[in-house]
Nucleic acid binder design. Sequence first.
RNA 1: GCGCCUGUAGCUCAGUGGAUAGAGCAUCAGCCUCCGGAGCUGAGGGCCACAGGUUCAAAUCCUGUCAGGCGCACCA
Length: 576
Amino acid sequence: MSAGIVRETVHSTLQKALKDAKTAGDLELTTLPALVLDVPKKSAWGDLATTVAMNLSVSERRAPMEIAQIISKHLLPAHSDVLARADVAPPGYINLTVKRDLWFRVLAEIETQGEQYGRSTLGLGKRVLLEFVSANPTGPLHMGHGRGAAVGGALANLLRHVSYDVSTEYYINDAGRQVRLMAASVTAVNNQTSLPEDGYQGAYIHDLAKQLRAFPQPVPNVAHWACARLLEGIKADLQAFNITFDRWFSEQKELFDSGAVDQALNVLRQQGYLFEQDGALWFRSTAFGDDKDRVVKKQDGEYTYLASDIAYHLSKLKREPQYDLLINVWGADHHGYIPRMQAAVEAFGYPKDRLKVILVQIVNLLRGGQRVTMSKRAGEMVTVREVFEEVGADAAKFIFLTRRADSQLDFDLELAKQQSAENPVYYVQYAHARVASLFRVARERGIDVPVTGSVDWSVLNSPDDLDLIKPLAEYPALLEASAQALEPHRLTYYLQDLAGRLHAYYYKHRILPPVLERELDSQDHLKPVAQEADQGRKGEVLTPALTAARLCLFRVVQTVIRNGLGILGVTAPERM
RNA sequence: GCGCCUGUAGCUCAGUGGAUAGAGCAUCAGCCUCCGGAGCUGAGGGCCACAGGUUCAAAUCCUGUCAGGCGCACCA
C-alpha cells in the first residue's frame, strides 16, 4: 500500500507511540484500534488528525482527552524528526503538525516516481473484470453510453493505478428481439412497408437501409449484417473517445452458438433453482432475496434476456484464473436487475458481492442552459459522436466525471466548449499548460528547471507553499480511497482544487525574475534585472534560490495534474 | 401499492460517524507597467426536507413522514 510518504510516516509514528504507551503501562490497549488519519478541516488544526483517543475511550474506560494527552506525550519526544507538534483538542482529537522537511520529501518522491507517483499495492494480486458500455448494437451510442464509457474507462485506469489486474469487457447484445426489430425496421424502409410495432426510427436506420441497397452481394442475414455495421460505428466512437476493451463478448456467438445458455440453466437446474410453470421456465431468484421469480425461457420457447445474462455472468465467474470482483456499469434504469443478477451469482455458489454494479444516471443535454429535447420514439437522439465533434473528447469525459455516477448530470454543450474558468476541464488543463508555458519562458531566458536534489527547499517557507504541497502528499491516499469506493469523480474534484491552488500561487508569487530591459546577454538570453530592483508582489524578494525551488515545485504539481488527468483519460496539453 | 435512488447556499453539486458543513456558478465589491487575466482576491448567502432513535460524537447509521426520480414484463 502507499497512502503517501507523509501519511505512512505519521501512521507508523503514531503506532509506535501507542506501543510505547502500552509498554510504559500508560494504556491497556487490549486491542489495537485502526489508526485513521484525517486531514482536518482547518489548517490551524494541524496537518493530520486522529480520533483514536475517542475511539479508545470505552475500552480504556477513561476520558478521551486524558487518553489523547497520554498518546501525545509518547508521540512527541521520540519522534521529533517527524512531528513538529502534537496538540490535543476537545473532545479528544490529536492534531499533528508535520515537520516541514517531511513535506519537502514529497516533492522529491514525486520527481523520482514521475508518472508512477500515486501507485499503490492496494489491489495487488486481485483480479477485476470490468464490464461497461455494453450498448445494444441497434443504434449509435447516446449520451448515457458516453457517460458510462467515461466512468468505466476512468475506473479501469484508476484500479490499475492501484495495482488491480483489470480486464475490460463489452457485452454485445447481438441476439434477441431488439436486434430483430432493428433489422426488420431497416427492411421495412427498403420495402416501403410500415415499421414493425416498437420498430426503430431515425436517420441511421435510413442510412443502413441505403447501405444495404447498395451492398454488392446479397445479404442473407440482415440482422447480422446491420449489427456488424452498427458495431463498427460504436467501436469507432469509443476509439474516438480513446476507450479500449480487452474483450468484446458476443451474446450470439459465445452464449447461444456455444450452448452456454443451456449449460448455465442446467447448472441452475442441478442446484434446484429452476422450475417449470405455465409452460415457461423460471429461475427461483426469490431464494436469494429477489422480489419474485423470473422467467428464463418463455412459453414460445425463446430465452429471455435474463437467461443470457445469467449465462454471461456464469462465464465471467468461471474464467480462469478467477476474478475476485466483477464490476458492471449499468444505466440507472436497470437497477431493478441487480437483485436477480446477484441471485444468479449466489445460485452459482459465489458470494453475491462478487458482483458490484455501478449505476450511471441519465445525462440531461443542455445548450446555453436550455434543455435539448430528444425523442427516443422518433429516433431523435443526440449521439456521443455529435457531442465529441462539437466539444471534444476531453471536455466530454471530464464533464461526465464531474458528478457521482448515480447523480443526474446536466451537460451543457455551450459550457463544455467554452474556454474559461467556468469550464472545469479547461481550468485544470490550463493549470498544466500554464506550467509548461512558464518553463518555455524560463528556457528562453536560460533559466534551468532544476532537479529536486539540487534545490534548497528551506526558501519555501510561506504558508502558500504548504498549501500547494499538502494536496500533492494526499494524492496517493486519494487514489486509494477513490479506487476502493469505485468513485473516479473524486479525482476530478481533487484536480480542480489542485489547479485552483496552482493558479492562486501563480498569481500571488512571481516565479521567474521579471525582465525590465529587453537586453540580451552574451548567450542571447534575455537579461534578468538586478536582484535589488526585483520586488515582487507583497514586497517579496525573488532570489535565484527561490526561483529554482518554485520552478521545481511547479514541475511536480504539473506531474500530479498530468497523472490525474491521465487516469481520467483526459489529455494534459503543453499549450492551449 | 411494492422496491431502489435522491432531498445539503438562489442554481448545479462535493462531503469514507468526528471540530465552526464546503466548491463552482449566479449576485455584489475589487485586482492586468512584469512569467498566459483562458487568471486571482474578498463579501453576502444554510433549522444538511421533516420527526424520532442509536452513539461520547450524526449531513453521514436506523425507523417513520413528506417531496422528486427510476423500476416493478414470458422487453432489453
